[in-house]
Structures are given as structure tokens and as C-alpha cells.
């Protein structure tokens, strides 16, 4: 990210470069993903280059992914000056990763409630929870922003643009 250029202060939450282990993981993940996809692709018919089956192209792409992963691992393990290779640049995970996962979970709950109870209530709750707990806004600000934003979204999407979002308030 471009913040990397910002003056480096050793603050608690500064993005810190990941170590060699993380650089290896950055290559191992594509290898794992590519191998899994290749395994699935083998289950489809492969055909030949001039008469390809459904599995051939996914297999080619999966192989490419594995090759790139191998290259990344090799660079991570062999670079004389570890920091000099651009492929080794990663960012270590911090305590903040928990907030990221919490946010993703909240969004997943939102998506599952959406079609059951209409968009109004989940939207209100999601906004409030995010503002208050992830954004650390005050109770008052959180409530005010959540209510007004939900109202604006309703007016814009449902009344203004006629987007068929599931909703329980009808006019």
C-alpha cells in the first residue's frame, strides 16, 4: 500500500513487514489453490489442445498458478537480501485482523437476514454496530447516522430508482 512510503514510526499498529515465513506462505497459498483446482480439473474431460475439453483450460491456469507460487517460494527462500526482492514484500497480521473477521461475519449475517426480514432492520443494525463498535463513534452519532442513512438508502433505492430490494415498509 502507498502508506509504506509514510515515515516509519514504530507505533503499535504501523504496518510491519512480514517475515520470511509469511513470504513463503504467500507462495504456498497459490500452490495449494492451484493444486486443488488442478485436481478438480482432472475430474473433467481434458481433451487436447486442438480439441479442448472442459477441464483443459482450468488445468492450464491452475498449473500457471502453481508455477507462480513456486517462483514466489523460491525467491523467498533464496534471496540474498531478503528485503530487496519485491516478491518478498508482505505485511504482518496484527490484532486488527480480529476486527476484519468480525466485520466480515457481520456482513454475512446481514446478507442472510436481508431476504427474510427486508432490508430496513438489518441495514439499521449493521450500520449501528459498525459505527459504534468498529468505528468507535459515540452512541448518539452512531444512532443518528444509522437511522438517517437507512432512510436515505430507502428513499434513493426504493422510491427513487425503483430497485426491488426486499422491504417491509411500503407506501
Amino acid at each position: 500500500m502507498s502508506d509504506a512510503e509514510a515515515p516509519q514510526e514504530e507505533g503499535a499498529d504501523e504496518p510491519r513487514a512480514g517475515g520470511r515465513a509469511q513470504a513463503v506462505v504467500a507462495g504456498a497459498l497459490p500452490i495449494a489453490l492451484g493444486a486443488f483446482a488442478a485436481w478438480l480439473a482432472f475430474g473433467l474431460k481434458l481433451g487436447s489442445l486442438t480439441d479442448p475439453g472442459p477441464g483443459l483450460w482450468p488445468l492450464v491456469v491452475a498449473a500457471l498458478l502453481v508455477a507462480c507460487g513456486v517462483a514466489i517460494v523460491v525467491v523467498a527462500l533464496s534471496a540474498k537480501v531478503f528485503e530487496a526482492a519485491p516478491a518478498n514484500r508482505t505485511e504482518s497480521f496484527t490484532r486488527g485482523t480480529g476486527a476484519v473477521l468480525a466485520a466480515a461475519a457481520a456482513l454475512a449475517v446481514y446478507a442472510s437476514l436481508f431476504e427474510v426480514v427486508g432490508f430496513e432492520l438489518p441495514t439499521l443494525l449493521l450500520l449501528f454496530a459498525w459505527l459504534r463498535f468498529l468505528g468507535r463513534e459515540s452512541w448518539l452519532t452512531s444512532a443518528a447516522v444509522a437511522v438517517s442513512a437507512t432512510a436515505v438508502a430507502y428513499a434513493l433505492f426504493i422510491l427513487g430508482l425503483g430497485v426491488p430490494l426486499p422491504h417491509i415498509i411500503a407506501f
Partner: peptide
């Protein structure tokens, strides 16, 4: 703007 290998890996994942 970074590593060629990582760009290629990202592209391969997109293709997949």
C-alpha cells in the same frame, strides 16, 4: 508495480 511473479499469480487466480 511490485513483483512480476505476484502479478502473474494474481492474474492466474483471476483466470481461474
Amino acid at each position: 508495480s511490485g513483483s512480476l511473479w505476484k502479478s502473474a499469480a494474481a492474474a492466474a487466480l483471476g483466470l481461474l
